[in-house]
Design a protein around this nucleic acid. Structure first.
Lengths: 209, 209
DNA sequence: TAAAAATTCACCCCATTGGGGTGATACCAT
DNA sequence: ATGGTATCACCCCAATGGGGTGAATTTTTA
């Protein structure tokens, strides 16, 4: 069997950048640019017939933005991989993009060779990320070391964050219901909130849990 | 100013692998192996004075395992970066390691050049990951496409997962309290559970939310 | 276009929960 | 020995959560 080219579509509103990518990828052995569009809206009705393996997608675009475009592209082309290529490094955008089905996330300062390699990687089921993105993702797993909460309080807040009730927590930690209550009260005091939802929100924002 | 060498400590129980890394890194310009140990327990009392910039850490080890070793190492050497180098690819271990403060996660099939580059990357605040690890991490952000839950049900379960009460959900979605209730009942039916905690657990396990 | 699924709402029941207040004891670690 | 932590107690009461049953309407899909 012969390895066929990796078919790439590009959706990027900046003409210069789009031509640049197109030139770069089109002139690389084993890669083929099947189409390029200046927005998702321009691509929507045509990209399905292009049958790309990988879609390079910008986030900042007129009309439908990149993040919202991902699930639509996945619906049009269930087997295509979406590789985000953008200048944005906001944690929110990155996670939204990944949650929406992006297979990788590169920033625009990524060297050409890495872009080419990432397209192949993504086609083969990998998940390429720029180092700064990987850093943010890793950091998102790490807890804040300067938590105002004690160990026990953190533990209880974690139970709360998975939907446990007071009595469930009391049972699992082998302590009295009242003790759980007083811990929760102290948690609320420290976080300056007065509901489970707010406590969870504040804790997540500050990586306390 | 002159760039000083990157100081590396290695904690790895396999003698052969340890010497291999030691040789590889020690013979690379700009890198210096300041110490190597066959376990965390062996390193515990001495590594602080080695003052490494980066610690290469194995997960599978006699005595204190790698995951538990991370926070202790971070306590001994708050400014050192821990780079996991292991054969394990279990999602649980990866996330535990990252949550415990690991700065990067490489699998042992990583080519030498990539290991060397990753040590530098980690020292400069990056977050290197093997492609297969990045893939798992990315997948962990992505929802299951074959959810038994409807869009609305998923939305409501997400609200529940952040600790919202029925009435809070009703207010935010502009629907009646009773409607929220009936959605929740349907969610419980579909997931075969009968509590918020179980629903959240099942949903998280199946990436429904 | 007809059937199936999703979304919406209603009213029954009732034990449990959640949040607020106040206070107390014991154990640590600095 | 003083402040933070962890434990428990009892006051109050509205709201919540979970279970049952049924039904109208809209949307999606076959």
């Amino acid at each position: 069997m012969t390895n066929r080219n990796i078919l790439v579509s590009i959706i990027e509103d900046d003409d210069t950048i789009r031509s640049g990518y197109s030139f770069l990828i089109g002139n690389t052995e084993g890669y083929e640019v099947v189409s390029s569009y200046s927005s998702y809206d321009a691509a929507a009705h045509k990209i399905a017939s292009d049958k790309p393996d990988v879609i390079l997608l910008d986030i900042e675009m007129p009309g439908t933005n990149g993040v919202d475009a991902i699930p639509r592209l996945k619906k049009l082309l269930p087997h295509a991989h979406v590789l985000i290529l953008t200048v944005y490094e906001s944690e929110k955008l990155i996670f939204e993009a990944l949650a929406n089905g992006a297979s990788g996330y590169l920033t625009k300062n990524t060297p050409s060779a890495k872009i080419i390699a990432s397209i192949k990687e993504v086609k083969e089921g990998g998940g390429p990320m720029s180092i700064n993105i990987a850093k943010m993702v890793i950091r998102s797993f790490q807890k804040n070391k300067e938590s105002p909460l004690s160990k026990r309080e953190t533990q209880i807040l974690e139970e709360i964050s998975v939907g446990k009730s007071r009595s469930q927590i009391a049972n699992e930690l082998f302590i009295d219901l009242e003790t759980v209550r007083s811990h929760i009260k102290n948690i609320y005091l420290k976080l300056n909130v007065n509901s489970r939802a707010d406590a969870i929100k504040t804790a997540r924002e500050n990586r306390l849990i």
